[in-house]
Every structure is written in structure tokens, then in C-alpha cells.
Amino acid sequence: MSTVAPFVRVLDAPPVLARLYPRAVTSRPDPSADPTRTALEQRGVRVDADRLAAYDRVCGFPLRDDLPPTFPHILGFGAQMALMVTEPFPFRLVGLVHVRQRIEQSRPLRLGEELTVRASAAPVRSHRSGAVVDLVAEVGTGDGEPVWRGVSTYLARGASAPAGAVADDAVDLPMPDAGQPALWRVPADTGRRYAGVSGDVNPIHLSTASARLLGFKRAIAHGMWTAARSLATLDARLPQALTVDVQFAKPLLLGSTVQHVAARDGDGWRTAVRGRGGIPHVVTRVLPG
């Protein structure tokens, strides 16, 4: 699955998402573009305690010297966005749906480590509802030790993959076998708070008004917030080296009350956030190693 783009562009500064989103609306997709051509790299990235603490607060992790396994995603997200907006990209960003996320880490990253963040894309695959593309974020130490890798799978509904593209064969994650679910009241300002720590200022998360412009009834939670909040409940039980698969199902409307379930599954865990009638919003599977 890993790819290596022939061209690596080194970013001087972290991409500013507030500037990328407006461009995302106006930029024209180039259906013939090969997203795997370029990778973006940012060096000398350091996480300080303030930023980590703010993230931990919003997502429910205790403040430790380790970065939670979901944290590095926010380090790579800007570069992923920039890859989709500033480089030739086959799909329109508006309307791309984050359907799955995979996280692999060989150990937790640590506060104060000098990090290199790299974003690249995998070849487009065909999908029963359109086409999917994987945006890959890799975070390693400045020394060159790769530690964390995140694969964000985006679905472009109705789009078509190039001829000969491989088909996306992912299957739905099963729900955990769980007893009593926990109740979460998801505050209406969650999207703004997570945007504050992650920089992901996509209007669909910020307010009812801005979400309506894009066709949602109310603002919806960031998928990665929901996933992080869910994994935070496992906390000390999360393995050091792990693989997490996350499936984003139905959007979670902010201000609603949802159920959270978590259950052991062999050496690992399964968790899910579900709404009325048990309809899943987010399902995860955590495996050690």
C-alpha cells in the first residue's frame, strides 16, 4: 500500500487550512491528474505541551509525555489538504468524504521530539459509489525513524477511477459485542473546539449556519474527533505499538446524545459510537502491534 512519490516538495511552514478551504471551493479538479506524483514534507516539527494539552482536553486523553495515537493525524492533515488543493488532484475537495482511517504506530511519539511529517497519496481506486483515494501521512523522528503512519481514505461520490484501477475491497467493520453503552452528550461547540486544536476549519463542523450552506441540517462532528474521543476511553489500555482501523459511517450531528460502546476482542479492542436505533457513526478496531 505504501507508495513513494518521485517528487518531494519541502514545505517551509505548516499549511494554513483557513486559506486552503476557500481555494478548495474554487479549485478545479484535473481528472487526469496523478495524485501520487508529489509528496509534501515538513521538517523540524515539534509538539509543545500547550498544543498537546489543548488536544488532550478536547478529545479526553490525560496529558502524558506520549502523544495519543490519533494526535499525529493533525500534524499531517494540513499537508494532506495542501496536496489535494495546491497540487494537481483528480477530485473536487468539496464533497470528498472521509470514509476510513487507518493508524499504525510502532511506538508512541513523544512530546518534544523533532518530527518530520510527510503527506502523499496512493493511486485512485474504483468504488461501488465512485472512486476512493488514500491520503497517507507519515510522521517520523527528525532522525529518520518512521514511527507513525495514517491512511485517510476519501470517497468521491460519482467520480470515476482511471481505467484499470484496482477496486476498493474494504468491508465494514463489525460492531463490538458490548454490554451497557456509555452516553455521550456531544456539545454544540465541539466542532469549533476541535477546529481550534486541529486547524481543520471545514465549515461543516463550525456552526449550524455554515453547515447548512453545505447541505447539513446542523454542524457535524469531525470524524477524527469522534474517533479520538472513542479511543481516549481505552486510555491506559491502548497498546504501545498498534494498528487502528476506523470506519466513519453516518455523520454525527453536534448537540446530540449518542451511545459509546467498547469491548475487548482478542488482544485488541473494538469500539463504536452509535446513534438512535444503533446506527453507527464511527466504528473502530484496535490491534496491538
Binding site: 505541551a49 500547550d50 494539552a53 489543548a54 488532550d56 490525560p62 496529558l63 502524558r64
Partner: peptide, 17 residues
């Protein structure tokens, strides 16, 4: 200073761990 962002619960957790 160093623990400006740490809560009492964070610190107690670290001490117990």
C-alpha cells in the same frame, strides 16, 4: 511554568503510573 497545561488529574495519573 512546565506544568502550566497539566491538570491535577493529569499529574496524579503520572505520579501513580
Amino acid at each position: 511554568k512546565r506544568y502550566a497545561q497539566a491538570s491535577t488529574q493529569d499529574m496524579l495519573t503520572a505520579a501513580i503510573d
